[in-house]
Design a protein around this nucleic acid. Sequence first.
DNA 1: CCGCCTCGAGGTCA
DNA 2: CTCGAGGCGG
Length: 683
Amino acid sequence: MSQPDQTLRDEAARLRAELDDANYRYYVLDEPTLTDAQYDGKLRRLQEIEAAHPVLVIPDSPTQRVGARPAEGFPEVEHALPMLSLDNAFNEAELAAFTQRVAERLERDADSLEFCCEPKFDGAAISLVYEDGVLVSGATRGDGRTGEGITTNLRTLRSIPLKLRGDNVPTLLEVRGEVIMSHSGFEKLNDRAREEDAKVFANPRNAAAGSLRQLDPRVTATRPLEFIAYQVARLEPDQDLATHSELMARLEHLGFRISPWLEQVTGGQGIIDYCRRLGERRDRLDYDIDGAVLKIDELRLQRELGFVARAPRWAMAFKFPAQEQTTRLRDVEFQVGRTGAITPVARLEPVAVAGVTVANATLHNADEIRRLGVMIGDCVAIRRAGDVIPQVVRVIEGARPEDAREIVFPERCPVCDSQIERLEGEAVARCSGGLYCPAQRKEALKHFASRKAMDIDGLGEKLIDQLVERDWVKTPADLYRLRVEDLAELPRMAQKSAANLAFALDHSRRTTLARFIYALGIREVGEATANNLARHFGNLSALMEASVESLEAISDIGPVVARHIHTFFRQAHNQNTLEDLQQVGITWDEVEMQPRVQPLAGQTWVLTGTLESMTRDEGKARLQALGAKVSGSVSKKTACLVAGEAAGSKLTKAQELEVPVIDEAGFLEKLQEWESANEEAET
DNA sequence: CCGCCTCGAGGTCA
DNA sequence: CTCGAGGCGG
């Protein structure tokens, strides 16, 4: 193949610059400079050159926005810094409380604090990483810690720069923001879908999120997606920027689109005014927003405030009041859960609320029905609470039809006809049928098979329904006694599916004690408690024989949970099932379950000063893993004070109270010693 | 709770 | 082509 001459190289470079610039002006500044035809012409010319001379193709070329090959799946991507959620404020009082809290913590006047305010777009949160100015990775939020790598899909968004603009680009930049679809883009997309008789999307948010999960980036490329940057997670070098607003301005220069209506305001009233103004223009916007985000503008103050659990203390999300719709209550059904809990579910005339069709809503319990004073046939107000769960808010006065019927809370289980019991002081009523009740049995089996329990692949709800209805399966142990020939008789189950299920069952036999305990579905014993129990007892028989007192002695297990566990193992039918399960070959490694060494159990430690080798939080976590409590202040009960560099009053106080003090070197030495003892125990 | 995507498999029809 | 399961995200 011939080498491209210099003129051609220059032309390719020029075309790339022009196309990048046109993208930026169109998608970021909203000031188109080229017509579509001009843009396409230049793009095609660049494609020709690159096709003829593949050496000229570079990853950040505008022609590379559409990755050719569909992916096989999305890789896991760990976020260098977790993507946190924000605390929510639902009214102005809660906003005021936020300002107050922040002001007090900073020991500042609330009226003088500067905030940076922006709309909260309703889309899908993502994170982008640029190294030496080039986009190298893009991922979804996921659980905040790890997300899905969707880089090739994100490359197709023309508002995401493939390389940063300008000179002086940072060596490392991680940008967070929202991928959204405008109302107009959404309408156009659905019009197109209707013409082609394809599926139409329910709302812009789902269309955006769905588009990102396409395996074929060429499909994503046809979707009108936009990216709006709202946060800098990492920036190196940090360029001496003092405020969040300055960071946003910097992002804009680097080629990102930032939130329109980004404003700096002062004081609590400034925030409230901003939220009001945004609320007023909300309906006229071409984008779905569900509130505003308020951030302390000064980065120094953000650092001072730090984080609490899963959210920064320096930011708050203001949520607009949830949209309400009215519809008719057709009927109420009573569902039976895994523990027998009876839940009344409202069957509603389907109604569109905030972009989705709602046909069901939980009424929680009898008290809630009484509180609402609702009857079947009533017109009711529905809203989607806390983002998602549909809720019956109230009955619409004066709209009750003649034939409205009272909602009668049943006295007998609608599934198995056992007595329904409601304990003194409890809101929930329960079917007393236990595992005699097919509904409870189904739920228990579903739980047993679920991913975090025995992880039986392919054993879903419908299949369990059939197995229970035919009485083929009464206890989890029966699952392992099913015969492939019988399974193959079931509808939608032929040889292949039956064999797959048999394989999955077989595969699930080897598990861990923690999973097994969790799978049993003991009330109030979730994943975390099951883990605790497994670690503490190391084997099943010790757990089965444990007294209530010895259970209560375990951290995080209180009297109620201890009693549930104890009762579970005293019941004859549970004992039989456990025996059966072991008989059908459920096994786990005993060795793995050695109890952890907790040399610091019962001790309270305090950290002060700056540690060189780790953050304060990390030190705290490591101490806690060894059983210590970590507190913020020194008292005579303090077991030991770790004094880092520039320790202050805590050190003085410890000396006064004659509390033992160690320095960082001593601390590290001790940590190593204790932690290595644990590693030995665990392997 | 709801919507979306993907996959494997079953069923139907030519 | 349709269904069930599984996974993700808000």
